[in-house]
Each structure stands twice: as C-alpha cells, then as structure tokens.
Amino acid sequence: MIITSTNIAKPTTIIWNGKEVKTGIYKKPVNQPILLGNQIVKNDEVSDRKHHGGEFKACYLFSEDQYEYWQRLYPNLDWELGMFGENLTIFGLNEKDIYIGDIYKIGSALVQVTQPREPCFKFGMKFGTQEVLKQFIDHGFPGTYVRVLETGFVKTGDTLKLVEKAKNSISTWQFFDLLYSKEKNADHIKLIMDNKALPKRKRDKLKSFL
C-alpha cells in the first residue's frame, strides 16, 4: 500500500435544510508532507468535532482503487484525489485485508486501524444526491479511520508497513457490514467487543445486539 495523495481542507459552507453548515469534506491534494496529530491532521478543517477528528478518527484513509467504480457512477463530477474527504489516498488499500486494531508505520507516524467511515448528508451534498449514501453502504468499501499512536509526517510515496497484526479481530469490510446489516453476526461482535481500537460507546452499542 502506498500513499498517492495527501489531502487537507479549508472550511467550506454549504446550505442544508435552509441552514448554513460548515464542513471539511472538500479536501484538496497538497504537495508537501502533512502532520498526523493524535486528534486531527494539522491544518485540516474538522468542523464537526462530534463526528470527526478525535482519538479514534484522527485521520481518514480511502483507497484509490475504488475511484474507478465511483467515476463510472458519477462521470460528471469534478474528479480529483481527496474526493471522498480522505486525508490520505492509498493505492492498494483493501478493506477485506485490513483489520480493526492493525498497527501500521506510515512515514514517521505510527497509526492503528479503528473504524470505517459512515457516510452522512455532507457526503451526499458533495456528490449532488443523498442517494449516494445507500450506494456507498451497499458497495461496502468505505475506507478507514485511524488513530495516531505516534505523531509524524507522511507524504506522497510513503508506504504502509504492517507493524502488528490485530488478534481476535475482524476486517474493516466485515465491521462495516456489521454496522449496517439487519441481522448482526454474533460471532463478529464477540470477536471485537473488547477491541480497544474501537471507542467504548461503539463496542457497548454492538454488545446490545447479543
């Protein structure tokens, strides 16, 4: 896996249900290294601190491999890397191969896979339709958030090197399916309900389905 683009956003105001809403989803590629902090990426706009940023969502990764699929669905959009609001566009990232709790070295930073992205109305606004939310969920390749165990700079061309494989875990792809499936996989819940790479509130919610 290799970084093909580093992306940050300036605050952008959109209109949602007649109200002004600030967002940081409109990320643009930058030519210099970016600093992964333990709460946010430095100089990146994180408008909604309730749902973005923080320990378990410090940085968002999305696979460049998925771009072709979405470009076919939405050929008229102004496409560039960072389109999905990701801080790091990664060639070769496959959600079926990365597991909740996996630890990677990227550049001089050390990160841990935490949870997949759950799309919201701002994602729909960017794509011009709220229908894209269901399409995103059905497609099943949402990218992943990471928490930053050791802050550091990353740049285009840096590779993701697996440092420690999570034990007794499930893949990001399986966890995303678990979040949205009506019939919850009890075995998957049992595997991750004590996984400290997930925030406690999310683990507690999943336990309620057992």
Rank of each mutant, 00 (worst) to 15 (best):
N38A: 13
M83R: 10
R72S: 07
E118S: 14
I14E: 06
G92C: 04
S5K: 08
P199W: 08
V163A: 10
K205Y: 15
V132G: 03
V154N: 00
T23L: 14
K205A: 12
T151P: 13
V41S: 00
L93N: 03
E80L: 12
P142Q: 12
F121C: 08
G143N: 06
L81N: 12
T114I: 03
E64S: 08
L191A: 14
L93P: 06
L61W: 02
H52F: 09
Y99F: 15
P142D: 01
V46L: 10
F209Y: 07
Q174I: 08
K184T: 01
N76W: 10
L191N: 10
L162Q: 02
K96P: 01
F62D: 10
P199S: 15
E20Y: 11
D138W: 09
H188E: 14
E164K: 15
N7R: 05
E68Y: 15
P75D: 14
R203I: 09
E150R: 11
G54M: 08
H51R: 13
K122F: 01
K28D: 10
G18R: 02
V148A: 03
N17M: 12
E164Q: 13
Q39I: 10
P29C: 08
G143Q: 05
V132S: 07
K19R: 14
F209W: 05
L178Q: 02
C59K: 06
L81A: 12
Y26V: 09
N168E: 13
C120D: 11
T23Q: 09
K28P: 08
L210M: 14
N87S: 03
F175V: 04
I98R: 07
H139P: 07
K42W: 05
K200A: 15
L93S: 10
K126Y: 04
G157W: 11
Q130T: 09
H52D: 04
N43M: 07
G143C: 05
D194S: 15
A58Y: 05
L110S: 05
V111M: 00
Y69Q: 06
T12W: 10
Y26P: 04
K161G: 10
I15E: 13
T89E: 15
L81I: 09
I98Y: 04
I90T: 06
S181L: 04
K165Y: 03
S5F: 06
D158F: 05
L206A: 15
S181P: 02
F84R: 00
G124M: 03
D204R: 13
E183V: 09
H188Q: 13
V46P: 06
E183F: 04
I40R: 15
I100Q: 11
V148H: 02
E131Q: 14
W16V: 04
L61M: 11
K57W: 07
Y145M: 13
P199L: 13
R72E: 15
K190E: 05
W70P: 06
K200D: 13
N31L: 15
R72T: 03
K57Q: 09
G152V: 00
D65F: 04
A186N: 13
I34K: 01
T4C: 12
